[in-house]
Nucleic acid binder design. Structure first.
Ligand SMILES: [Mn+2]
Ligand SMILES: [Mn+2]
Ligand SMILES: [Mn+2]
Ligand SMILES: [Mn+2]
Lengths: 223, 223
DNA sequence: AAAGTATTTTAGTCTTGCCTAAATTTTTTG
DNA sequence: CAAAAAATTTAGGCAAGACTAAAATACTTT
């Protein structure tokens, strides 16, 4: 009697996955905040998911949750849908990178595996979405992410932008404007000890830009 | 306090629209059969839809339902989504015409108006879907359908196939095989009084085909 | 026109997924 | 380390949308 994975459950699993990526286990409150749902409701769902057969999360009272292998597969399935969809919308329907997130958030639960496969094929089996986020493989493995925040660079260091956080459309528009997009080379011309500001030279741009930590913590680079 | 039009409601309205197209009002049982839902459940929903503000259907006990203007607009919105999606899937992802229906049935409830507009643009504002069905216009008007069943043709009459019924994938594959697809010219070489069989010459095909009424009633032509 | 059949409606339940208010547990702080 | 604060869970409810069984209504047939 395998648990039916509803849209709602898919959303829980997806967000738990992302929270697990950072710290260890995902807390009730964090999940609630992300899903815009009352914490009490989250507790109820966590109990349900951990009692499912097979269990989708590991849950002990007051200690947050971790995904089981099954839960992780289900999460990666949704994340693969989401990121392929974002790529597809940009490529095929001319969406800009700040417009795709909401649309993909709805479609990700609804497309068939056939649709997924056809998108991947049409896009040439991409490894990253328009924001540079890694796309889980068809067999649901998440590639290793070697990037770190731009905020961790210091004066005279050079690196390549690999991905940017995609949940704030306004930030995305701004980054696009100043040319800070995946695969672009950047050099730190100055790092300020006091406020953490980074003066950045962006390849192909005349003038440098000064970025605060709110931004430099949402841009990820590799050297 | 306008009624929220859920996915479920959209499905009811869509099928009521299609039933209204044939006979007058849609019966509880017919709606139930189409939606694969118990008749008792349908009664409940019809009451709800007729009490909505504004009402989406006109309903009197034991007399079936008709859509109001508001209900019709909502239905046409979904049907436009559905048919544009079918076209889009065929054009962009290489689906064949017998594969698109199920996928479109899920996506139709989820895409944004922006998505709809972009598809229409990308497809060059088509007026018919892959099965030849008319696509409601952007301002939600259904173009007039002048076609009639192939079954109504008699010996020596010539006509153009305009559309075919799209709910049986096996029939669609068969029709494709024998070349009976929209915009193809056909001539009735013989009509049998007894069983209604039609011997059809299909433009560009060597040998004629004999079609029974099950098929000829699901193929629509214009002279 | 009465009886039988088919259709539709009513009545009563169930599941999912959410909510608020109140309790409980954990963490932080003075 | 005890009190205050924050986080989490329990308890009790609600709305949507489905189901089954039984009652009511409408249609057919003799
Ligand atoms: Mn996204
Ligand atoms: Mn993304
Ligand atoms: Mn269809
Ligand atoms: Mn169609």
């Amino acid at each position: 009697m395998t648990e039916t994975i509803t849209q709602s459950i898919q959303d829980y699993l997806k967000h738990i996955y992302e929270l697990n990526e950072n710290g260890g286990s995902a807390s009730t409150n964090d999940i609630a905040a992300r899903l815009n749902i009352a914490p009490a409701s989250v507790t109820g769902m966590l109990q349900k998911l951990s009692n499912a057969k097979p269990p989708l999360v590991i849950y002990k009272k007051h200690q947050g949750v971790t995904l089981t292998k099954n839960g992780e597969k289900a999460a990666l399935e949704v994340i693969r849908h989401h990121r392929l969809l974002e790529s597809f919308l940009v490529n095929t329907l001319g969406y800009s990178w700040d417009e795709v997130h909401l649309e993909a958030d709805k479609l990700e639960h609804v497309i068939s595996e056939d649709f997924e496969a056809r998108m991947a094929e049409a896009l040439g089996h991409p490894t990253r979405d328009p924001h540079g986020e890694l796309i889980p493989t068809a067999d649901l493995t998440m590639p290793l992410d070697k990037s770190r925040p731009l905020a961790s660079l210091r004066t005279d260091e050079t690196a390549t932008v690999k991905r940017v956080s995609d949940d704030d459309p306004a930030l995305l528009r701004h980054l696009h404007e100043i040319g800070v997009i995946p695969e672009v080379k950047v050099t730190v011309k100055n790092y300020s000890e006091f406020d953490g500001n980074i003066t950045l030279q962006v390849a192909g741009r005349k003038s440098n830009v000064v970025l605060g930590t709110v931004i430099t913590n949402q841009v990820f680079i590799e050297k």
